[in-house]
Simulated scan of single mutants.
Amino acid sequence: MTSYPTTDRLTVADALESHHFQITEDRTVGHADEVLRGAHVPYLLVRDHDGRCEGLLTRAGTDPFDSRYSEQTPVGATAHQRGPFAWPALGLALAALAMEIRHLTVWPVTDDDGYLLGVITAARVAALLALPPGRAEH
Results as ranks from 00 to 15, higher is better:
L117F: 02
F85D: 11
H20Y: 00
E25Y: 01
L97Y: 13
H19E: 15
P42R: 11
G38P: 12
V106P: 09
W87E: 02
P74M: 05
P5A: 12
A60F: 12
H40W: 03
T73M: 13
T62F: 04
A95C: 13
R52D: 04
E17A: 14
Y115C: 06
D50M: 04
T2C: 05
A93Q: 10
I120C: 12
A77Y: 03
A77P: 03
R124C: 03
E54Q: 10
I101N: 09
R9K: 15
D66F: 12
L104Y: 07
Y43V: 10
H19L: 14
H20G: 12
C53H: 00
R68K: 05
P74Q: 06
H20M: 01
L10M: 11
R37G: 13
D66E: 07
A122V: 04
R59I: 13
V29W: 02
A95F: 04
L90Q: 07
A77N: 04
L131K: 13
G91N: 08
D112Y: 00
V12L: 06
L117R: 15
D66C: 14
D112H: 01
V125T: 07
P74K: 00
A130V: 06
I23L: 10
L128K: 05
G118W: 07
M1C: 05
S67I: 14
W107K: 13
R9S: 15
L56C: 08
V46E: 01
R68W: 06
R102C: 04
G134W: 09
L10K: 00
A89C: 07
D33R: 13
V109C: 08
V46I: 00
V106R: 14
H19Q: 05
R9A: 15
A77M: 00
L117G: 10
Q72L: 15
E34W: 03
S67M: 11
G55S: 12
V41C: 05
F85K: 06
A123H: 02
L116V: 10
A95I: 10
V35I: 15
E100Q: 14
A15V: 13
E137K: 07
A96S: 14
W87S: 01
A86G: 05
C53T: 09
Y69R: 12
R102N: 08
